[in-house]
Design a protein around this nucleic acid. Structure first.
Lengths: 148, 148
DNA sequence: CGGTATCCAGCCTGATACTG
DNA sequence: CAGTATCAGGCTGGATACCG
């Protein structure tokens, strides 16, 4: 949604953070949603969260991540990794060997983020069934347009 | 990303929840990311979180929401509202008056979600500056490709 | 092995117009 | 006022090919 990765160009062009709007909130206010949007845009890359999730316990190499995430393309992995690196969520360590070795490790910031999304994860786990149930109910009530 | 709202058609076609993969996690595990993805897809609609955020304190009518969210198109508002309603995050109450009155109210489920995203909101607020700093640092170090 | 650049398809999004 | 339908555009994301 604001992930700047169209064709791997202008990597910072879209970051247009308008100043002001700095209100003391508890984190769930209306004005705070904007902040959250940034984060969910950051994490809502669909791959970002997967990547940092895999990086949670140990550092991984590029190909290891490529295998681990399973389904991500090389392009998206690179893009995601670079963005995450840019945001300071992970570090990229290049070992100048003949076959290049690149290690990706989660930073403290990344760990804290993972910890925060864990809250959402718990909510998801807790209410997934409920939501699924609601959807089914809703869909049933709306697809019942063939009576008589 | 998985928001099913292409042209207001097949509202439940994409919900392909494969069974299994039910592991007891703490909410931050790798396998748990899938669950979170559903939620951030649910909330990452960019408008969804804004809408439920505005609905947090009081119920609102369609046009009120339209004005409040400011920037959302009628189409997206409707789509978002219907999705949220489908998921059981809010209720839609139609008052059969001559000028149609439709009230949207957050459900308990919606409130709990809002509470969970508040955690992310707090994280965002806390580390926004840090991330911004990291980005600037990263961009600076990478745009310094014009020496000599 | 790690990464970049290009091409291309699909989806999301927004604007507009019309109906009840 | 509330909502639906249609059209057009922008962005995201995947596959492929090639470089260091």
């Amino acid at each position: 949604m604001a992930t700047h990765q169209n064709t791997a160009r202008d990597p910072q062009q879209r970051t247009a953070p308008p100043p002001g709007a700095q209100v003391p909130n508890d984190g769930s206010g209306v004005a705070e949603c904007r902040q959250v949007l940034q984060i969910i845009s950051l994490v809502g890359n669909k791959w970002s969260i997967l990547v940092i999730g895999h990086l949670r316990d140990r550092t991984l190499r590029f190909s290891e991540l490529h295998r681990a995430v399973d389904g991500i393309s090389q392009r998206m992995l690179t893009l995601t990794l670079r963005q995450l690196e840019r945001d300071g969520l992970l570090t990229r360590t290049v070992h100048p060997t003949v076959p290049p070795h690149v290690e990706y490790a989660l930073t403290t910031l990344g760990t804290t983020l993972l910890d925060s999304v864990a809250t959402l994860g718990r909510w998801a786990t807790t209410h997934r069934q409920e939501i699924d149930d609601n959807r089914l109910h809703y869909d049933t009530a709306h697809s019942a347009r063939t009576p008589t």
